Simulated scan of single mutants.
Amino acid sequence: MSTIDAASASPAPTAPPGRRAERQKSPRRFRVRRGLLYLTLCALLVVFILPLVWALSGSFKQRGDIFATPPSLIPSPATLENYRNLLTTQPFWSWFAISIGTAAIATVVSVFVCAMAGYGFAKFRFRGKRILFAVMFSSLSIPFAVILIPLFILVVKSGLANPWFALIVPWVAPAFGIFMMQQFIVQAIPDELLESARIDGSSEFGTFRRVVLPLLRPSLGALGVWSFLQSYNSFMWPLVIISNTSQYTLPLGLNILYASENRSYDLVLAGAVLASIPTILVFILLRRQLLEGLVAGAVKG
């Protein structure tokens, strides 16, 4: 028999027994890890969704049944009296309109301003750029409570204490939004694309509006959700700047119901359920842009 025939007739090398055992165990380990991951996610889902389910259940219960023992998630009997009392005895729709209106305006203005500022920091060179960006970025480490009183004095002395204006001021140009837009523009928009638009005769604002903004849709959606939640859920600033009860936002209005002598938990729960509807709708409408922005930031960042 020749050497070639002997080599072909020899049995194929086999893996050591230890490696074969590891290969057999790896699918089992994968299934165990995946099961633990799903179990952890289910536990976190229960933790996050249980307060909302409890609030929804309590909003249909009578006040004496909310804290009954043993607790029950199914109201028996179910009643709409809580919602009826909230909408008829309290200026809920006024609180709701002010919160939605100011949050929507603040979100639109904030997204546009942050996109423009981020575009300037990312694609333009000017004197003092690094110093200005460092000052802006360092403001992220300053708690809002530190600038609360100076901002209040500045707004009042300027004669701009109108609720519809004062409630929007703190959210017009957040440092987080500017930094987020600057980072996304640096990574996602090449300079060659901007140069080609300028060669075609486009102005700087036209380039920003026609070229930059369409490419920023994922990050704009993520920033829009963040800005809306920041303005909509704000409590400290409206508490300082607003003195008229009829001009309260939803967080302040619900706090009045909670801080009253009767502790109107039934009205608070009904108001909390209604107040959560806009945030859920915003997430549903912008969920695609939000997820795309988060994925883009995770991959490119």
Rank of each mutant, 00 (worst) to 15 (best):
23 R>C: 09
23 R>M: 10
23 R>F: 12
24 Q>F: 13
24 Q>M: 14
24 Q>K: 15
25 K>C: 03
25 K>R: 11
25 K>Q: 10
25 K>S: 07
26 S>A: 15
26 S>E: 14
26 S>I: 12
26 S>H: 09
26 S>Y: 10
26 S>K: 14
26 S>T: 14
27 P>L: 07
27 P>N: 00
27 P>K: 02
28 R>G: 03
28 R>W: 04
28 R>K: 04
29 R>M: 12
29 R>S: 03
29 R>K: 03
30 F>V: 12
30 F>G: 14
30 F>K: 12
32 V>G: 10
33 R>N: 05
33 R>Q: 07
33 R>I: 09
34 R>Y: 05
34 R>A: 08
34 R>D: 01
34 R>W: 11
35 G>N: 03
36 L>R: 02
36 L>G: 00
37 L>E: 09
38 Y>K: 13
38 Y>W: 15
38 Y>G: 09
38 Y>P: 11
38 Y>C: 11
39 L>Y: 03
39 L>V: 13
39 L>P: 06
39 L>E: 04
40 T>F: 14
40 T>S: 15
40 T>W: 11
40 T>R: 07
41 L>I: 08
41 L>N: 02
41 L>V: 13
41 L>F: 08
41 L>R: 00
42 C>W: 13
42 C>T: 15
43 A>N: 02
44 L>V: 15
44 L>Q: 06
44 L>T: 09
45 L>F: 12
45 L>P: 00
45 L>V: 03
45 L>G: 09
45 L>C: 13
45 L>K: 02
46 V>Y: 02
46 V>D: 00
46 V>T: 05
48 F>S: 07
48 F>R: 03
48 F>L: 11
48 F>D: 03
48 F>G: 01
49 I>R: 02
49 I>Q: 05
49 I>M: 12
50 L>Q: 08
50 L>P: 08
50 L>G: 07
50 L>S: 14
50 L>E: 06
51 P>A: 09
52 L>A: 13
53 V>K: 00
54 W>E: 01
54 W>Y: 06
55 A>K: 05
56 L>Q: 09
57 S>P: 07
57 S>T: 11
57 S>L: 04
58 G>K: 12
58 G>Q: 11
58 G>R: 11
58 G>E: 06
58 G>M: 08
59 S>G: 06
59 S>E: 01
60 F>H: 03
60 F>Q: 01
61 K>M: 03
61 K>Y: 01
61 K>H: 01
61 K>I: 03
62 Q>L: 14
62 Q>K: 12
63 R>G: 10
63 R>W: 10
63 R>I: 13
64 G>C: 06
64 G>Y: 11
65 D>Q: 06
65 D>N: 04
65 D>E: 07
